[in-house]
Design a protein around this nucleic acid. Structure first.
Lengths: 218, 218
DNA sequence: ACTGCGTGTTACCGTAAGTAACACCGCACG
DNA sequence: CGTGCGGTGTTACTTACGGTAACACGCAGT
């Protein structure tokens, strides 16, 4: 099989793929994660089967789409995380970067967190094995792992550093995510206040806080 | 309209409703969140329209279902949170309770976190308003709020306590959730180790940790 | 001119949500 | 005793979406 002059075809196929992704992007941004393949195809000026030829199935398209945005967001986060500043400032900068991103484009954020799983792919039969754990948004997992490696590289946590770093990576990312999600919905305070509150939490203010006098109960 | 003797009818309707919910529960436990209305109806020994009469639409059924489990889980968490012990022990007990719950019944957990949103409810037209923030699993929100009230009741955080408590409530719940989700998928360590790692994180060990000597970069 | 391949189409299938219309039953009321 | 009437149930349908044939055009290379 000639592997020599396929570049020509491949080039155009890649361009097409990128065009399709951009069209899908527009539709998802407009219609949310429940955008239909028909709508995406229409936006791209073509019809469904082409999408399927390029991406296999809806999951494939969504995965490709998610990866673009995830890559972009991760790059920003890495930049904030690698800035030459002390740890607290870096943490705050990273939190703020994330929150700014989800604030600026909530639709994208929503899409990344809810990859519209489901569909009616067969195997209704006796699926006790289950795939829990795989279902969470890839973005969360990737951010967690990323943060874990940074923590592991930067901090000295004694024995068990590697495992602890992963626990913390996923934990911190989850904290950021849930707080951000809640904040985006209710807007109970400014972004800066939220960042500060979360950083305070990570800085052990929970442990340091005093009990309320005359607590309700005991 | 006579509000007098409706109790009879209402009673039986409520019983029916509970039976339907239990059937739905069995199916969701077996088939995951993508269980079809047909399947649920069949399990209950009836047909679709009855389900729709009782719950309006799939979302209604799922909401009702989710509330049962959420209530149960929240009760357990409250118990752990209210135990007569010092703060660190209570935090660890609560984390462990949550993790034990999702470990014991991952299907339920998965269902609660992914309420199978979507569907093809019309309104394709120029929906720029968006409802970000509402989409997150109700369980997370409720746990966050619950924890927030407990924090606010128990801790003295100075001015802005109320707001800070809510930030922390949602943040901590998110941390617990994301770490639990990751842990459930990869099982990288024992439950106790995870609990300890997270509690350490909350206890400010991140801030206290020393830099690694000769870090990669600067 | 013929062949092969990538790109595109229309037309279709299966499935699932949701609905309309009809059928049965118990029961108060004339 | 018959007759309406609300609740429970059904079958049969519509609509929409994911996914897949099967066919049609255009453009290289031989």
């Amino acid at each position: 099989m000639d592997t020599t002059q396929r570049t020509e075809q491949q080039r155009s196929a890649d361009r097409r793929r990128r065009e399709l992704l951009e069209a899908a992007d527009r539709v998802v941004l407009r219609d949310g994660p429940q955008a239909s393949m028909n709508a995406i195809a229409a936006e791209a000026g073509i019809t469904k089967p082409i999408l399927y030829r390029h991406f296999g199935d809806k999951g494939g398209l969504y995965a490709a789409l998610a990866q673009r945005h995830t890559d972009a967001l991760l790059a920003s986060l890495r930049a904030a995380l690698d800035a030459p500043a002390d740890r607290r400032e870096r943490v705050e900068a990273t939190l703020d970067t994330y929150l700014a991103a989800i604030e600026a484009r909530p639709q994208v954020y929503r899409f990344l967190m809810h990859p519209a799983e489901g569909s009616q792919s067969g195997d209704q039969s006796a699926d006790q094995g289950f795939d829990v754990g795989k279902h969470s948004a890839p973005l969360l997992r990737r951010m967690g792992e990323e943060l874990a490696t940074v923590i592991e590289e930067r901090l000295d946590l004694g024995p068990g550093t590697q495992q602890l770093a992963r626990v913390w990576g996923h934990g911190i990312v989850g904290m950021m995510h849930a707080a951000g999600d809640w904040w985006l919905g209710e807007r109970p305070c400014s972004r800066a206040e939220l960042v500060r509150g979360l950083a305070d939490l990570l800085w052990g203010r929970l442990a340091a806080a005093g009990d309320k006098v005359g607590g309700p109960g005991f």
